[in-house]
């Protein structure tokens, strides 16, 4: 029997290291027809803000080589709607439900986190200080170590459960941001959010996205994500959750080898909605083939 459970600290123990990335998995139930969502270590629901947000105008998406750009802009109905209408539907899941929280100001983040703190069935918050698609806040907090620490510190004061902080790759040195949020009290870091990119329709001489630039995800970003997970896992003591272009179990194992204690499946959910289940089965198969009986022995075990 292979042991798959991983502990991310501060009472966040996952039955296995497979999570799904915020904004690619809705609220979980959209995937009920495709596989048993509770079989995953957990799932991270769509970015939630204090007030409802309409997001950006269409077009919000462009397909690019081995990837896609999006410019959704955190469209959601706000935390009160989440609490009243969506949270009750999440009680049926037996695994870890994690809520991604975003905001335009420190006060926004604190107010939203305080509300989420009242929900027993939410195991953790993933603090999104890395959305590239909003004008105010978002990535602004995640590109400056002092501002990143400030928002994490403020949320830490009102949220005692596990606090995961999602980092942006759009920085010169991601380890500086990781260390700053670790010092401010983050229990774990997840990386990477999307890479800022752009696509152009040459025939029409126009940008493909309404916002001109957007966030790049999918297999195209995997090497960048792996590099950053490797760097951050050597720079901080808190667990690292790796994401960026994971489409199969081999990709996931690469992240675990690089130092991630868990992984998130993102864009691949759009292409094959059963990807997380396939990745989980494939990790188990990999461990058996390599005679490893505990997934924790794989984490950070890259031979260099």
């Amino acid at each position: 029997m292979v042991k798959l459970s991983v502990n991310l600290g501060n009472n966040l123990s996952l039955a296995n290291p497979v999570l799904t990335a915020s904004g690619t998995f809705g609220y979980g139930y959209e995937y009920d027809d495709f596989f048993d969502v509770s079989s995953l270590g957990g799932f991270i629901v769509k970015g939630t803000t204090l007030e409802p947000r309409q997001g950006n105008p269409a077009p919000r998406m462009a397909e690019t080589p081995s990837g896609m750009l999006n410019a959704v802009g955190l469209q959601n109905k706000g935390v009160e709607y989440f609490v009243s209408n969506i949270y009750p539907k999440l009680l049926k899941y037996s695994n870890c439900v994690i809520v991604n929280v975003s905001g335009s100001s420190v006060e926004d983040y604190v107010a939203t986190a305080s509300r989420i703190a009242q929900l027993d069935h939410v195991a953790a918050i993933e603090l999104n200080i890395s959305c590239p698609n909003v004008k105010k806040g978002g990535m602004g907090f995640g590109t400056n170590p002092d501002m990143a620490a400030q928002v994490v510190d403020a949320v830490r004061k009102v949220y005692s459960k596990h606090l995961m902080v999602k980092l942006t790759p759009n920085v010169t040195d991601i380890t500086a941001i990781a260390r700053a949020v670790e010092s401010a009290g983050a229990d774990s870091v997840s990386l990477i959010n999307t890479l800022l990119g752009m696509a152009i329709d040459a025939e029409r001489r126009r940008p493909m996205l309404s916002t001109i630039t957007g966030g790049l995800s999918g297999p195209a970003v995997k090497p960048v994500a792996l590099r950053m997970v490797w760097q951050v896992s050597h720079a901080v003591k808190i667990p690292v959750v790796g994401l960026g272009g994971i489409a199969n179990a081999t990709d996931a194992v690469e992240f675990l080898l690089a130092g991630a204690s868990a992984v998130q499946i993102g864009t691949a959910n759009f292409i094959d909605p059963s990807t997380p289940a396939r990745v989980l089965a494939g990790i188990e198969d990999y461990l058996r083939r390599h005679n490893i009986d505990n997934v924790n022995d794989l984490i950070g075990s890259l031979i260099v």
């Binding site: 809705g26 959209e30 998406m61």
Partner: peptide
Amino acid sequence: ETMMACGIGVCLCCVTDTQEGN
């Protein structure tokens, strides 16, 4: 008809502007 990614309501890429918002 719009460009879509997921087709199952999670990516929010295919929105259209309506009386109820996007």
